[in-house]
Simulated scan of single mutants.
Amino acid sequence: MVQVILTLFVAYGIVLGGAIAGGIGAFLTEKPPFLTMHEMADQLKIWGLVGALGGTFDSFLQIEKLLLGNFSPVAKQVIMILAAFVGAHAGTITVQWLVQVRS
């Protein structure tokens, strides 16, 4: 359970921190910071997932164990992938809520 919570918040932090840092960079280069933050949050979602899962796709290699009949590692990895997705999506929603860019 501890690893699931850590994975969720790492993905959340990657998206939120990256969007904020990108907004600062946009401000320094005289670009619209809120619009940049909004766009970067969407672009960083996949990187939040990858970063939270350890930067590699070893999680997806656990699916091979499914063919051998060992479901426990596969279930754990699916839970970790879902936690990373929830964290990255929550980070995106938080940034969108903070900047409230109107389309």
Rank of each mutant, 00 (worst) to 15 (best):
V78S: 08
H38K: 03
V15Q: 00
Q62R: 09
F60I: 12
T94C: 13
F27W: 02
G55S: 03
G54Q: 06
L53K: 01
S59E: 00
G51D: 02
I79N: 00
Q3L: 14
F71C: 00
I63T: 15
F34W: 06
S72F: 13
K76F: 11
D58S: 11
G13C: 12
V4Q: 01
A41I: 15
A90T: 11
P33I: 13
L61Q: 11
G54W: 02
I81E: 08
V15I: 10
L82Y: 05
V2R: 05
V74C: 03
K65F: 13
G69Y: 11
D42E: 14
V4M: 03
I79W: 00
I46K: 05
I24A: 15
V15S: 01
L6M: 06
A88D: 03
Q100T: 12
G17N: 05
G51V: 03
A52M: 12
V78H: 00
L68S: 10
V2T: 13
L68D: 13
Q96Y: 15
G22F: 00
A52E: 06
T7L: 00
F34T: 09
I63A: 14
D58H: 05
G13M: 12
I63P: 08
G18L: 09
K31Y: 03
A83H: 05
F60H: 03
G17K: 05
V86H: 05
L82Q: 04
I93G: 05
Q3T: 15
